[in-house]
Lab assay of single mutants.
Amino acid sequence: TEEYTYTDKEKADRAAKEWANRGYTVTVTQDGPTYRVRVG
């Protein structure tokens, strides 16, 4: 499991979509002003 942190919702959504397109399980959680994209 890897985790990426973004401050921009659009970038987080785009990253999540790209990982999902590659067949990974993706979870996006909002943590205050940041968005965490957990992959795998």
Rank of each mutant, 00 (worst) to 15 (best):
T1H: 13
V39W: 03
D13R: 08
R38K: 11
K9T: 03
Y6N: 01
R36T: 14
N21M: 11
K17W: 12
T34E: 09
A15L: 05
E2Q: 15
E2F: 15
Y4E: 05
V37P: 01
A12P: 00
Y4P: 02
T5M: 11
V28T: 05
R14K: 13
W19Y: 07
R22E: 13
E3P: 04
K17P: 02
W19F: 12
T7R: 10
E18R: 09
T27A: 07
A16L: 05
R22M: 15
P33L: 09
K17H: 11
Y24D: 01
R36S: 07
T34N: 13
K17M: 12
T5H: 10
K17T: 10
V37Q: 00
V37T: 01
A15R: 04
V28S: 03
D13V: 12
A20R: 15
A20K: 12
P33G: 11
G40H: 14
Y24I: 04
Y4I: 05
G40S: 15
V26L: 01
V28H: 01
T29E: 11
K11G: 10
E10D: 13
T5L: 13
V26D: 00
T5Y: 13
A20P: 01
D13Y: 15
R38T: 14
K9P: 10
G32V: 01
V28A: 02
T29S: 10
Q30S: 08
G40P: 04
D13H: 12
T7P: 10
Y4L: 06
N21D: 15
K9R: 11
R36L: 13
R36Q: 06
T7N: 11
T5A: 08
D31I: 12
R22F: 07
Y35R: 01
K11N: 10
K11P: 04
R14P: 01
V28K: 02
R14E: 13
N21Q: 12
Y4G: 03
E18D: 13
G23N: 04
R38D: 05
A15N: 04
V28G: 00
E18H: 12
A16Q: 04
Q30Y: 07
A16S: 05
E3Y: 11
E3R: 04
T1E: 12
G40Q: 14
W19C: 12
G23E: 02
V37N: 00
D8F: 03
G40E: 15
T7L: 11
W19V: 03
T7F: 13
V37L: 09
T25M: 11
Y6P: 00
T25R: 09
N21H: 08
A16D: 01
T7V: 09
E18L: 09
E2S: 13
E3L: 08
V28R: 02
R36K: 13
Y24G: 02
D31E: 12
A12N: 00
N21T: 10
G32W: 03
Y24R: 05
G23V: 00
T34V: 15
V39D: 00
R38V: 14
E18Y: 15
W19Q: 03
A12K: 01
N21G: 12
P33A: 09
D13I: 14
Y35F: 13
G23H: 03
Y35G: 00
T34S: 10
T25A: 10
Y6G: 03
T1R: 09
E18I: 09
A12Y: 01
V39E: 00
